[in-house]
Computed example of a mutant assay.
Amino acid sequence: MQGHGYAPPPPKRPSTGALVVLRVIFVAVPILSIGFLAWVAPLRAAIVTHRRADWWIFGGSLVVLGISFAYLSTDHTDDFSSPNGNVGMIILLLNAAACVGHYLYADIRHYHRLYPMVYLPPQAPAANYVYPQPPSPYAATHPQTPVTPPAPAPHTPAPHTPVPPPPQRPAPARIDQVRAELDELSDYLRKRDGHYDGGRDGR
């Protein structure tokens, strides 16, 4: 019984630098030739993509180029300043712009479909990876006894400290008594000072 065989390897994607250089060349040729070589860009697109629509566009560019040549051939001035010359130059330049735009679109779409960009998710850092340790022969001969964590100590509530009551103001009767004593003391001192002064004068 024969197998299906090996699948052919996928075509290698051209380097980005080579693609950029080719695109610059096939864009510059129609512009630098003032549209006379505009058919080069759609021809390149048709060869790369192998699509029937691109070949039809290449043929259409040749037809438009022939129409512009027909107008330019009827112009007998040196700078294409006649109405036919102006129409022929406008058609020529528009054809060049359309050919360049189609070539860039077809070429970019072709390589994007053929080699889609694949974004890989970021990988976890290797520093967090824990490597498994090989079993120790000591652990095989001396099995470890599971250590039971100590029981938590019972929570003892803190003793309640009584809050002293705020100081009370003395009663009005006490104030009156103190005031009376102060008055008596003032009278006594006044009398004593008077007696002391009289005795000193008599002497």
Rank of each mutant, 00 (worst) to 15 (best):
A98I: 09
V100I: 15
A126D: 12
V40R: 00
P30D: 07
F36I: 12
D54G: 08
G17F: 02
G88E: 08
P8G: 07
P125S: 14
S61V: 14
P146C: 01
D193F: 10
F58G: 04
H195K: 14
F80N: 06
M1R: 11
D54I: 03
I67D: 01
R200C: 06
L37Q: 00
P10V: 05
L93F: 15
Q123A: 13
T148S: 08
K191L: 09
I31W: 01
V147L: 05
I108C: 00
A124P: 10
P150V: 07
C99L: 03
R169L: 11
N86R: 15
V130W: 05
K12A: 13
P11S: 09
G199W: 08
L189W: 08
A28N: 05
N84H: 13
T156N: 11
F58S: 04
N128A: 14
Y131L: 12
Y111A: 08
R179F: 08
G198T: 12
V21H: 00
P154A: 11
V147C: 02
P30A: 05
Y131F: 11
D78H: 04
P121M: 07
T161G: 00
V64N: 02
S68R: 01
P83I: 02
K191S: 12
L93P: 03
M117T: 15
V147D: 02
A151L: 14
G35I: 02
A46T: 03
L189H: 07
H155C: 03
K191P: 00
A38D: 02
G199E: 14
L182K: 15
I25T: 09
V64Q: 03
L94R: 02
S15Q: 09
L22F: 11
V147G: 00
G202E: 14
A140H: 03
D193Y: 10
E184N: 13
F58L: 12
H160I: 13
G194Y: 14
C99Y: 00
N84P: 01
P30T: 05
D107L: 03
P166H: 04
I91S: 04
A124R: 13
N95F: 06
P170E: 07
P149L: 15
V29Y: 04
S61L: 09
A140Y: 06
P152V: 10
A7L: 09
A28R: 01
N128T: 15
A98D: 02
P146E: 08
A158T: 09
M1A: 14
F69T: 09
A97E: 01
V20W: 01
L189Y: 10
S15G: 14
P14W: 01
V178C: 04
V100G: 04
Y103Q: 03
A70R: 07
S81H: 07
V20I: 12
P116N: 06
V29S: 04
A153D: 08
E184D: 12
L189R: 11
A41S: 15
L72T: 04
H112D: 14
P146H: 08
H195M: 13
A173N: 08
G3V: 05
A98H: 02
F69K: 07
